[in-house]
Amino acid sequence: MFESLTPDQQELLAGYALGELDSEELSQVQELFRQYPVLEGEVLHLQGALGALPLGLEIEEPPAELRSRLMASATPLSTGVRRKSSVPWGRIVGGLAVGVSLLLGWQNWQLRQQLAKQQPDDVAITAEESLPPGQERLAFEEVLADHQNSLVRSQGPVDFATQNVAAVRSKYAQRMVLPTALPQLMKAQLLGGSFCELTQTKGIRLSYQVKTGKTVSFYQLLNSEGFPPATPGEIGAPIQVVQESNTLVSYVWKEQDYIYVLVGDLPLQEMRQLALSI
């Protein structure tokens, strides 16, 4: 099938596999997929060829002491401590064909986000436009649910009340690896911190109160392989909106081991300012 495409069409598919199509080209590829679903498999071949690049590297052996260092760090764990992945891969991945469909949806979403980014701040972004597809949506919905649950708990939004971020770090340093300093919001009052176990990752939720009295949650989550971070975008820009309450889930940034997410029922502009004050 692939060989029967014109050279231009083949190049379009290659551009698709590289993730470098403009919106017009993307429409053309989507039309090709619609006509010839078998081409989705060809994309996997192209991505496979790209993914084989590391095999072309000259092999460099790590220094011998690295193994010793690793083995010294890897103290025996008791049975059951090394947790098997609880990620519902079957539901998330769902097969290669679905994966390609998600990719298409993802690229559409990216394009919509690019367009949304070019609009003035006061232009409403609807929930439909803001929702990322598939696994990302599921993951951030869980973060949103955690935030909303924290607001209605009888004991208040925090497990550990303090106005000192360092105290939160000390409190939870035993439960997960944390950097020496936690980032914090500068334009809000810290209420305290809580430890969160989500399906695909875990982390710290810092609860803050803003001037209007509303509570926002600032999450520092482990950059787990099972937790899909949003593609980095404009700081504070929404990745998900709950239309009824205007609650925004804003991806903030990903940095090495952590993903930072801000959730709150605030106007978009205010949310961005909060994110930029970190």
Binding site: L44, A52, Q110, Q114, K117
Partner: peptide, 12 residues
């Protein structure tokens, strides 16, 4: 905004 190829599989 750039396509993150970090998930590109190493398909051997």
């Amino acid at each position: 905004w750039q396509q993150d190829l970090s998930k590109a599989p190493l398909n051997l």
